[in-house]
Nucleic acid binder design. Structure first.
Lengths: 343, 343
DNA sequence: TTGTATGCGTTATCAA
DNA sequence: TTGATAACGCATACAA
């Protein structure tokens, strides 16, 4: 297959003018163009179905129009929603949304950043939480510095161990809020299902739980800490290992909704009544959280909105409008039916 | 922020050679380069953290390295899985995966294609099913022709009303299979919850149901056709409108799993026992389908694998290896517990 | 084995 | 109001 690209020159030939003039018409340039030629150019453009080569424009203007987005798992609603929110805003404004799915793998994460560097991305969003890994931190730091000196705009959702603007997602606060709620409803024997070990987000959410307990003069008990991985399956497994300590527990806070949903499912499966015998709480408010049995009490983190806010912020930055801030997104308690008041 | 890009020239200066030589080293060119200079170049590259500007390379080589993917809703597991599969393959090979989320909107769909044209995408995947809309068909046809003459490789998942290679996803066959299964289990009074009206995929799945019924000398009854929209919410609504005809129905085939899951949820909610009082069947095998109450009997369409197969195919095409075919992906019946044998 | 000149498609600068 | 020319970063044909 032979590429036969239509260029500004073809348009110029047809409109009987110079490429320069065509360029002026295309870009609504300040530089005056007579109405007559402008019309001829427009006609030629239409006739040839010409659209200017954005790649070439980019080369000239020192812009790639690429916005990179790094996520852990696009199949996870959390990331899917964020991407959708960003995409909504960004591709409307003629930017290319370039997704990387890293499965929390250090190499893939580095590969993504290096590609983005090679493609001279205009902006990179670290939508995925930072990995807690020495090599990741070290090598990321380097590439990020290189991206910076290229002029790439960088943005992290949740804190990252390199100097870029980070949006706090209130992870810790969310975990604190949901734990507070449990305690206010008379729960003291609270288990926690963690997220993946190597993820900073996991760490923050755990800290939130600990803080809430401390604020209420309660102690975080290591034996009531179970490991999860932010997935439904992980929640199911946690439910199983939780089973033989069930008399020591009245409520379980899961590090995220996917985990909580898995918990509820497996508890039901094992004949343990939620919330009659044990309360289950989540964080995120996934779309499916309201359809579990019972509907999940959780903290809403409006991720889709976060996505659009990020998009808005990036565009402002890219247009060099400086004093713009990212609109914050507030966690909100959603009381449904998976918690029982036991006071 | 000033962009200060490191270029091949900087490397040349540091390595005390010409840019041409640097280019040869970068590209492992056939053209001989002395070991000595090669090493100097490598050293300079490392020292400057240089990576060649892929955009500029693309301009020169007539490649954008962009692969566009058009989906309806990235939050829908179906699309998320397909993208994940493709991404796995594609970004590993230094391509840019450029996602467009169109929400089945004709304008957004056209916008996406036009952007992809302007960016001289190397390939475009129409992962989203075609819309049944006159303007869509007409304007899409035009842009697609223009993409073709630009040399863009085009691929559609499920048939599209313009001349591109389409991978059949066995939509019709899947619907036929699941309906066959219901009939084989003694069901004759079968309702169908459709997908969105304007979607060709919906049409195909409906045809599959009709064909199965006809093959068994049964009639498709218009009054047992309910409208859905491929979403959980749509399934819930369908359940409600289905309620007053429930004595005329023993099984419901939903156009997809999301719908089936919504159906089951709302039926449970209304106190209708699945499958004791009514059987519910889906198509897709979403990850969550095995966690409904009862677990959903459905047809698996291994979408993630389809994604990787598409990726593999595209790369072969882009490398001009011609006689490659897309590995087909076979629908498979997954019998779980949402159907009752009533023979 | 190395380097110079040219061009990819576009736009900014300058001159007319 | 228009256009010729150079340049963005890179790779290739050609010359040395």
């Amino acid at each position: 297959m032979v590429r036969k690209e239509i260029t500004i020159k073809d348009v110029a030939r047809l409109a009987e003018c110079s490429p320069t003039t065509v360029s002026r018409v295309i870009n609504n340039s300040e530089h005056p163009v007579s109405k007559d030629t402008a019309e001829k150019v427009e006609a030629a453009i239409k006739r040839l179905n010409f659209s200017p080569n954005r790649i070439a424009q980019g080369l000239k203007n020192d812009k790639s129009n690429i916005i990179g987005v790094i996520v852990h798992d696009i199949c996870d609603s959390y990331f899917a929603q964020m991407i959708k929110g960003m995409e909504e805003f960004i591709s409307e404004h003629e930017y290319i949304v370039n997704i990387y799915n890293t499965s929390r793998d250090v190499d893939k994460e580095l590969h993504a950043v290096n590609m983005l560097k090679a493609n001279r991305a205009d902006a990179v969003v670290f939508a995925a939480g930072a990995l807690m890994d020495k090599r990741y931190e070290r090598e990321m730091y380097n590439v990020v510095e290189q991206l910076k000196s290229q002029g790439t705009i960088l943005l992290g959702v949740t804190p990252h161990p390199f100097a870029i603007k980070n949006i706090s997602l209130a992870n810790q606060k969310a975990a604190e809020m949901i734990t507070d709620y449990a305690i206010e409803n008379g729960h003291q024997k609270i288990a926690f299902i963690s997220g993946p070990q190597n993820l900073y987000t996991s760490y923050l959410r755990k800290q939130g739980v600990i803080k809430s307990l401390e604020n209420h003069s309660l102690q975080f008990k290591q034996e009531l800490l179970f490991e999860g991985d932010f997935t439904f399956e992980g929640g199911r497994k946690a439910a199983l290992s939780l089973l033989n300590k069930i008399d020591q527990i009245t409520a379980v806070v899961a590090a995220n909704d996917a985990t909580a949903l898995g918990l509820i499912w497996e508890l039901n499966n094992q004949g343990v009544k939620v919330p009659a015998e044990i309360s289950v709480l989540g964080i995120d408010d996934l779309p499916e959280a309201k359809y579990s049995y019972p509907p999940l009490t959780t903290i809403s983190l409006p991720i889709y909105n976060l996505g659009t806010n990020i998009g808005e912020y990036l565009l402002a930055q890219l247009n060099e409008e400086y004093d713009i801030n990212i609109k914050p997104v507030e966690p909100k308690l959603l009381t449904r039916d998976s918690l029982k008041n036991i006071e």
